[in-house]
Design a protein around this nucleic acid. Sequence first.
DNA 1: TGACTATGACTGACCAGTCAGTCATATATT
DNA 2: AATATATGACTGACTGGTCAGTCATAGTCA
Lengths: 231, 231
Amino acid sequence: MTRKPSKTAVPSAIRAGAKGPVPARSDEVPASNRATRAAERRAAIVEAAMDEFIARGFAATRLDDIAKRAGVAKGTIYLHFKDKESMFEELVRTVIVPVVTRLTTLPPPTGTVRELVETFAGNFLKEVIGTRRGDLVRLIVAEGPRFPSVADFYYREVVSRGIAAMRALIELGIARGEIREKDLARYPQILVAPAMIAVIWQSLFARHAPLDAQEMLRVHLDLIFGERRTT
Amino acid sequence: MTRKPSKTAVPSAIRAGAKGPVPARSDEVPASNRATRAAERRAAIVEAAMDEFIARGFAATRLDDIAKRAGVAKGTIYLHFKDKESMFEELVRTVIVPVVTRLTTLPPPTGTVRELVETFAGNFLKEVIGTRRGDLVRLIVAEGPRFPSVADFYYREVVSRGIAAMRALIELGIARGEIREKDLARYPQILVAPAMIAVIWQSLFARHAPLDAQEMLRVHLDLIFGERRTT
DNA sequence: TGACTATGACTGACCAGTCAGTCATATATT
DNA sequence: AATATATGACTGACTGGTCAGTCATAGTCA
């Protein structure tokens, strides 16, 4: 059957002579070729989807809103993603991977263990705490139970690696005599716990009581490495 | 006594909070009087709603399912709650309050500060970590941003009180010389961070890697109070 | 009996996912 | 180079299903 144009009014799509075919997008970039345009669109969708999912959660997010925000028609989303669920899953992967890569790109192993940990904490502070990526972490905590594949992915790619890296640092610290508490190596979670709390705090309670995450992390490191003799 | 039907149910006769040990054995009952029956129904709805909300999140939870699980008709829910949102909000209050009350009922201030903190941690471990209440905390983290009133309530009734209580303990510990890190009093979050992480871990990653929360908390306290032989 | 409480069929809004049709761009032909 | 044809990215009206909230009716207790 033909897509009957509509019984009344002129078919919107046939505005003869209309020039701007896609006026929605804010930045009018005349993408060179198709492949590039497609990649840009996909990126725009991911971007928009992240904002919407963070703001409303998975179930309450409307694909219409994502499409609108991305400056794309709803159908276009389905050219890039199978459905809402797999869009969410791919989104998490797409956003998380680069962050992990960047954070695990350790600096040259020079200096004390404390300095290594401080560098890591500094990066985490800058890249995650209080940023949209931090909100994404909160989102994963929120939706994880309903998306086993996301939880699995997150555990495998982020948590287990992070724990292993922290454990290695702790063991190095113990070996060098910088850390006294030997059992800490059994629970690297303790090392990162305040950082995670900071992420959640910024999302939920920043408006009630601002938290100086940097200073809190410093105090925590003092607790683990012993008071610091300032720089 | 005139039961004010008003628009929203009055949270008065809600003694049957969680597991009512009082009601006679078995179930299905002698339903003495109307007020009692009403309270029981309300409790059943709250119970069912908590399970559903924890399992599916706010938006994805169907009132039909809550009604079915609670053994009542959907319309009955509306005799007790104005709508889905206020049901969620009241649910959080109803469930959280008793827990906070129980946890803040401190033991006699005898013994060391470490013992006080250990008692608190032990209660928290038993009452929250790995239980449905822990899942509720995760749920609040998840839905908080979309329910400012819930986040406000939680901050006011739980977080700020908990932080204040922890700060008092830390200051006492510092005064008595049990805690060396003086700056800790500025960030009581550090004291509870591992406990919160344990809550989240049990919800999300217990399947991948079981976590001995009790032992982790012990190590953390060793870190704060200094080594100490355990039982 | 009369007031109060419970029920569940029903309604209307809402939304994920579809697909016939369009048109800018790429490729083939002259 | 200019023109013709092919491709597939893109659109958005539409469908089918879902679900929060309602209310006429039935049931229960005092």
